[in-house]
Simulated assay, not measured.
Amino acid sequence: MSVEKKIAVVIPSFRVRNHILTVISKIGPEVSRIYVVDDFCPEKSGEFVELNCQDTRVSVLRHLENQGVGGAVMTGYQAAIDDGMEIIVKVDGDDQMEPHLISNFVAPILAGEADYTKGNRFFDLEEIRAMPKLRLFGNSVLSFMTKLSSGYWDLFDPTNGFTAIHRDVAKHLPFTKISRRYFFETDILFRLNTLRAVVMDIPMDAKYGDEVSNLKVSKIVGEFLVKHARNLIKRIFYNYYLRDMSIASIELPLGVLLFLFGVIYGGYNWVYGLSIGATASSGTVMLSSLPIILGGQLILAFIAYDISALPSRALHKRISSFRKYSEKK
């Protein structure tokens, strides 16, 4: 893979001074530019890189206040776009990721098969034994929640920060709306789905060293639940009512209404029957159970439709085709 492909790497830098130079040294010649984003790091990692790194591809970008990993990545994305880079890869600075895999992440995008690629540490069942059990469970739960909110049902390991994106897709992301902190990786998937971008998992091994995570699961569970629910509602509205209408647009509200009617009606009559010591009639039971069954079936039908509705044609290829057509006119 040649340098002419204009591949850039963005490295958010916050409390990774002990690892950042090692990460940079592992980045191969296929990469044209490296953006180290000092996210108001208390260890002054940006200054440390400038003083100790001789790689001419490296540019240090600084934040005057801490913006979180999302803010750092957006700063790197914008710099790469301004410099005319074609593919933008994001690698963490804690040396948990292997930069020699960059070619694997870039290849599907260059081939027109994907707009955005991300790592998946769960591909090899033998390798995930190295992952701490609590983190493994947490990732499984987060993956299911992300499937619901983002619409990418074929993806796993949503918090994986090893990613690559095509410039033309990055340009269309709402930089000011994307979550700036730990919800960033998940939120960007939701944004990509609203653009109908193709996202692909890239297998990689789990790697854990002496790095210290700044993420406290107990503090973000509630926040993540709220944001996932918000993104799910937005995605359904955007994809099934604002931009397009399909049979699924009818199945979901009808299914929810029937299900809720059955639950509320049945619950009310059950409580009422207990209070007077009477047994519900067969008609009452049918009138409550039938809507629940039908509603559940309609909701499952909507989910099946949603799973089958994954984007299949890369957005950047569509943008390129439209651009060529416009130039001919």
Score class of each variant (00 low, 15 high):
residue 74 M to D: 04
residue 74 M to A: 02
residue 75 T to H: 05
residue 76 G to W: 02
residue 76 G to F: 00
residue 76 G to D: 01
residue 78 Q to E: 09
residue 79 A to N: 03
residue 79 A to C: 08
residue 79 A to K: 07
residue 80 A to M: 05
residue 81 I to R: 13
residue 82 D to S: 11
residue 82 D to H: 07
residue 84 G to H: 07
residue 84 G to C: 11
residue 84 G to R: 08
residue 87 I to E: 07
residue 87 I to G: 02
residue 87 I to T: 10
residue 88 I to T: 05
residue 88 I to V: 11
residue 88 I to F: 04
residue 89 V to N: 06
residue 90 K to D: 01
residue 92 D to W: 04
residue 94 D to C: 02
residue 95 D to H: 00
residue 95 D to Q: 00
residue 95 D to I: 00
residue 95 D to M: 00
residue 96 Q to T: 14
residue 96 Q to F: 01
residue 97 M to D: 05
residue 97 M to H: 05
residue 97 M to C: 09
residue 97 M to L: 11
residue 98 E to C: 06
residue 98 E to F: 05
residue 99 P to I: 01
residue 99 P to M: 03
residue 100 H to S: 12
residue 100 H to R: 09
residue 101 L to R: 06
residue 101 L to S: 04
residue 102 I to P: 06
residue 102 I to F: 07
residue 102 I to Q: 07
residue 103 S to D: 11
residue 103 S to C: 04
residue 103 S to A: 13
residue 105 F to H: 11
residue 107 A to T: 13
residue 107 A to D: 15
residue 108 P to Q: 08
residue 108 P to E: 09
residue 108 P to V: 05
residue 109 I to C: 10
residue 109 I to P: 06
residue 111 A to W: 03
residue 112 G to W: 14
residue 113 E to K: 12
residue 115 D to L: 13
residue 115 D to S: 13
residue 116 Y to M: 05
residue 116 Y to Q: 07
residue 117 T to F: 05
residue 117 T to G: 03
residue 118 K to C: 03
residue 118 K to S: 01
residue 118 K to G: 03
residue 119 G to Y: 00
residue 120 N to C: 07
residue 121 R to F: 00
residue 121 R to I: 10
residue 122 F to Q: 04
residue 122 F to A: 07
residue 122 F to N: 13
residue 123 F to Q: 04
residue 124 D to G: 08
residue 124 D to K: 06
residue 125 L to M: 08
residue 127 E to S: 14
residue 127 E to I: 03
residue 127 E to Y: 03
residue 129 R to V: 12
residue 130 A to Y: 10
residue 130 A to F: 12
residue 130 A to E: 12
residue 131 M to E: 11
residue 131 M to Y: 02
residue 131 M to W: 01
residue 132 P to H: 07
residue 132 P to Q: 02
residue 134 L to Y: 06
residue 134 L to M: 06
residue 134 L to H: 02
residue 136 L to H: 01
residue 137 F to R: 11
residue 137 F to N: 06
residue 137 F to E: 05
residue 137 F to K: 09
residue 138 G to N: 09
residue 138 G to I: 03
residue 138 G to M: 03
residue 138 G to R: 01
residue 140 S to L: 14
residue 143 S to F: 02
residue 144 F to H: 13
residue 144 F to V: 14
residue 144 F to S: 11
residue 144 F to K: 10
residue 145 M to P: 02
residue 147 K to E: 15
residue 147 K to Q: 15
residue 147 K to L: 13
residue 148 L to Q: 09
residue 149 S to W: 10
residue 149 S to Q: 15
residue 149 S to F: 10
residue 150 S to H: 07
residue 152 Y to K: 14
residue 152 Y to I: 11
residue 152 Y to F: 14
residue 153 W to I: 09
residue 153 W to E: 06
residue 153 W to C: 10
residue 154 D to L: 08
residue 154 D to V: 01
residue 155 L to I: 11
residue 155 L to Q: 06
residue 155 L to R: 06
residue 155 L to W: 14
residue 155 L to N: 12
